[in-house]
Design a protein around this nucleic acid. Structure first.
Lengths: 305, 305
DNA sequence: AAAGATTAGACAAACATTGTACATTCGCGA
DNA sequence: TCGCGAATGTACAATGTTTGTCTAATCTTT
């Protein structure tokens, strides 16, 4: 390559990779990786290769490995079977891109393969938050932009949806734990977010019961009455019809009578004030908000007897 | 498949499987299963095989076995033969009844448990045909009869649907094989039958690509054009609006231009004559018809180049 | 002189380990 | 129907490991 290898000082590398300088030194001291060259005055000079190595280590760690194992892996050259990131991307971004590319190419086999592979990239929560969630967001965007056909969007939803659903069932904590009821508003077809919530809840030891898409308020009321869940989470990505929004929300609020309830999803912000007036909680930032809200809600109501 | 020698720390495994870390240690101590390798500092390192083992134990427990029995079974390698165990019809019927009972009782935990247990009763096809299919039929009937609430129907669909979907993905034959495109009519929400078809096709070595619920004819046309499948199978359980039925069917028929296409499901009989006039095939007795029809259709069109 | 790098060592938080103990739960015989 | 004992998940304590960060003293670059 005619590319003369540029050299970076440690703080530049820290900036580029997000790994603090002291940590970089610690990695070198403890695992001997990377081993940058030095100036006459012993200042570290990282080559592009070194930087790529740091990125690889960082990604492997994010995937659940310890730094010691990651280092060993990279040293033994095994890392490439595990992650093939084109240099400047981290593993999750790369996986996301490959999956979206498979959707664009309309290649179901490739899509299956890439999605299955992504599942091994880390814990369920990580995979959902870093890969499958973003994939569906991008697919949605591309679809709205007219880049993707309806068929492509369907295919992506089907494959990714089924994997996420399977993941969410796989990680369910054992039975005697608190339970959250999940459902989508009526006319709401998108339930991927619900599975994401289920996965996150599971990682905090909370089970979820999913009623799925298009759950009418009467059904929700019925389920709440019979199951007495510790909370209810609803997803809303579409826009409620303005003239009926108030009535609809009220019916859902009544269905949740006495149980903490949350509304999340892209369409939640639009109804935030109404929801709050009805005693519900709107999940804006999702992950962070959810954690706080759930903790607060479940702290009040102790473990079921 | 590629042998991955990834190694996971105990907490990662706990999150992946939903089995708490202390329990994992207890299982290892008491039943010697799994026996993860150790780091120099005696930290447990679980391989993918170990993780799969934990999942199997977990599932077997969910299916009603004690952990001791499950462990013994997995150790002796019986867990897989157990799958093909003697299929007395009573067992299937009993499982069906227990699952329906769980739906009626509105007990999500019991439902999960019974469904998980049923999965180990036989091969994917058998389980679907003998248990999960009948369950959904009965649930549908009970719902129509007003015995089940909407919430109960939703819950059953969600749990059974996700299991069937997972099954159908699990049994997909390897890539270089003939391919059938599956989709539901627009406005059609019930896709369970499609997964059943996918499972059956898989047992004959045919892959399927699923576009899922509410696939409009344009999307189908797009998918047919891009994927050139060997056949298309559509599901219809609802009644098409009479005044639009002819036009709708025609659009779907055109979407399938040149490819053998089938219509199945409870609503198929009602449009049988029209479908046949348009060159499609109606699947009446389901299993038997499907086999014959598919064989005939795919015999004409050879393996894709 | 100020900003930034170097080393070595120390430290604390997070996480694992083992062994023991405890509380439920469940099946079985009384 | 009542308890008894085995089975099983979980808690606790004491100890050890891993790893990011911090400190102090010194040196280089600008």
């Amino acid at each position: 390559m005619s590319e003369r290898d540029s050299r970076y000082r440690i703080n530049v590398v820290a900036e580029m990779t997000g790994v603090p300088a002291p940590t970089l030194r610690a990695w070198e001291r403890r695992y001997g990786i990377p081993t940058p060259s030095r100036t006459a005055a012993a200042y570290r000079l990282y080559s592009d290769r070194d930087v790529a190595m740091v990125r690889k280590l960082r990604d492997l760690c994010a995937g659940g490995l310890s730094i010691a194992e990651a280092a060993q892996m990279v040293l033994k050259g095994e890392a490439d079977t595990f992650i093939e990131a084109p240099g400047h991307l981290d593993a999750f971004e790369a996986a996301t891109r490959r999956i979206v590319a498979a959707v664009i190419a309309f290649d179901p086999d490739l899509l299956e393969r890439e999605v299955s592979r992504a599942v091994y990239l880390g814990s369920a929560v990580t995979v959902f938050e870093q890969v499958l969630g973003p994939v569906m967001r991008q697919v949605g965007d591309l679809w709205h932009a007219g880049t993707l056909s309806v068929a492509q969007e369907h295919l992506a939803s089907e494959v990714v949806g089924s994997v996420v659903r399977a993941l969410s069932r796989l990680v369910q904590p054992p039975a005697p734990s608190r339970r959250v009821l999940l459902a989508a508003f009526e006319d709401e077809e998108h339930v991927l977010g619900l599975y994401g919530v289920a996965i996150r809840l599971a990682s905090w030891g909370i089970r979820s019961v999913d009623l799925g898409a298009r759950t009418p308020p009467e059904a929700l009321a019925d389920a709440v009455a019979r199951l007495s869940p510790d909370a209810v989470a609803l997803t809303l990505t579409i826009a409620l019809r303005p003239e009926r929004a108030a009535a609809t929300l009220e019916r859902y609020a009544q269905a949740c009578a006495g149980v903490p309830w949350f509304v999340g999803g892209a369409g939640a912000a639009a109804v935030a004030t109404r929801v709050e007036r009805l005693g519900g909680v709107v999940l804006a930032g999702e992950a962070a908000t959810l954690r706080a809200a759930i903790e607060q809600a479940l702290a009040v109501k102790p473990q079921r007897p």
